[in-house]
Write a protein that binds this DNA or RNA. Structure first.
Length: 428
RNA sequence: GGAGAAGUACCCAAGUGGCUGAAGGGGCUCCCCUGCUAAGGGAGUAGAUCGUGUAAGCGGUGCGAGGGUUCAAAUCCCUCCUUCUCCGCCA
């Protein structure tokens, strides 16, 4: 969410910046009307309330002195009625304004390239050599089915499309990747491990920005107002909702493994085969709470932590800076890490590292006090997160990039300790 | 899921309609006393948020959350949330 005062004072500038996102801004035009109306009503109703408070004291005094106060009570009855009407009007305007503000995306950072869609994303760097095969490489779903380590058909029977069973060494590989990444981020990168709830309430989903605009992308529990988390970002960021942290405990860094659930509404027909687009997938997520002045350094750090995973796994990737048209609702700046997938003959997203600045912090009310002893007002923290990495897509990348002519898969060396020293997955 | 109890400021806690916009402790900050320490004395201490103002300020909100009753609500009524105890169920 954007700051009301900031929007009020920089309206035209903000409108121009939001226009670069290529979204419909017609709602934004209502801002000035709602904001003005709200302030006008507050002024009116507060004068009346001040009067009521004052006269209530007089009534109390008269009552104690056993004097007659009927005139004052009669007057206050009228004031009370007026207050009730104005309060109701104010409440409605505030709801309108709130809904409007929750539907306005973040302002892109000045370093975010201006562009219309994914074709305007800017490649920042590339790492690793794309593997050259002296045979026809297979897509991971064929490899995995032949190896008996993934079963899409039975998952479709048991649940539906876009679900999968991992089996045998496939399941072990998934688990090995989770443990490898968790250990790396804790021990080498200084993150604290967290294992969050997979269901969150509506307030949390609103805090991180999934709601109200993207409700159809989430799975919802019918009986409760709970949602299946689309990413651990939601519970971990909301961990500090309505909290005031102290300056010396920042930055705070958490790494959380969780399953993630996405309805993939609007993706019908895209990536229908394999692990790339599932309704449920595993992910190791990095979340950082930082001071505003550090946030762009911190984003580079976080992105580097995610890249490190790909480097250690020996998977070729590139880093893109997402343009204004492809930025995501809540981000001010975003890097996507894309891993090489041989069967696609292209790079596919495997991590998204976003700086939200104070946008989520304002929605979720996460603040900090630089010096707890001073009387300074608390400030909003900056939040950021990134996948470190999406596990299913990592499995797909390993299967495809490490495949051998005979259909076997060589396990990257860093993973072998987590695989009970299995070096290769072979057809039995 | 059933039955009870409770939620007041950093913590404990008093408080059944108006001098409580929140007593009293503890803690914390500052000061005094004391050779040091311990003990003692004194003063201060609602954080937050909204409106208004260049600002000191002024005003609104605020006793788990949201409604309601009333001229007036921490206090009365309703709904919800959370915690604790017991029972049931369960990994």
């Amino acid at each position: 969410m954007l700051d009301l005062k900031f929007v009020r004072e920089n309206y035209d500038d903000i409108k121009a910046k939001l226009a670069n996102r290529g979204e419909d801004l017609s709602d934004f035009d209502k801002f000035q009307g709602y904001d003005g109306k709200r302030r006008e009503l507050i002024k009116k109703v507060e004068v009346l309330k001040a009067r009521r408070n004052e006269v209530s004291q007089d009534i109390a005094k008269k009552k104690r002195a056993k004097e007659d106060a009927d005139d004052l009570i009669k007057e206050m009855r009228e004031v009370g009625d007026e207050v009730k009407v104005l309060d109701e009007e104010l409440r409605r305007v505030e709801v309108d304004l709130q809904q409007l503000m929750l539907a306005i995306p973040n302002i892109p950072h000045e370093s975010t390239p201006v562009g219309a869609d994914e074709d305007d994303n800017v490649e920042i760097r590339k790492w690793g050599d794309v593997p050259q095969f002296d045979f026809e490489p297979k897509p991971h779903w064929d490899l995995a089915t032949e190896l008996g380590i993934l079963d899409f058909e039975r998952a479709a029977k048991v649940t539906g499309s876009r679900f999968v069973f991992y089996k045998g060494l496939g399941a072990r590989l998934e688990r090995a990747l989770i443990n490898f990444m968790m250990d790396l981020h804790q021990e080498e990168h200084g993150y604290t491990e967290m294992l969050p709830p997979y269901l969150v309430n509506r307030t949390s989903m609103t805090g991180t920005g999934q709601l109200p605009k993207f409700e159809e992308d989430a799975f919802k529990i019918r009986e409760e107002d709970y949602f299946l988390i689309p990413t651990a970002e939601v519970p971990v960021t909301n961990y500090y909702r309505d909290d005031i942290l102290t300056g010396d405990e920042l930055p705070k860094a958490y790494v959380a493994y969780s399953a993630c659930f996405r309805s993939e509404a609007g993706s019908a027909g895209r990536d229908t085969r394999g692990l790339i687009r599932q309704h449920q997938f595993n992910k190791v997520e990095l979340v950082r709470f930082v001071k505003p002045e550090d946030s762009y350094n911190e984003l580079e750090k976080l992105t580097g932590h995610a890249e490190k995973v790909l480097q250690l796994l020996g998977l070729p990737y590139r880093v893109l800076s997402m343009c204004t048209g492809d930025l995501g609702f809540t981000a001010a700046k975003k890097y996507d890490l894309e891993v090489w997938i041989p069967s696609y003959e292209t790079y596919r997203e495997i991590s998204s590292c976003s700086n939200f600045e104070d946008y989520q912090a304002r929605r979720a009310n996460i603040r900090f006090r630089r010096d707890p002893k001073s009387k300074q007002k608390p400030e909003f923290v900056h939040t950021m997160n990134g996948s470190g990495l999406a596990i299913g897509r990592t499995v797909a990348a390993i299967l495809e990039n490490y495949q051998q002519a005979d259909g076997s898969i060589v396990i990257p060396e860093v993973l072998r300790p987590y695989m009970r020293n299995v070096e290769k997955i072979e057809v039995k």
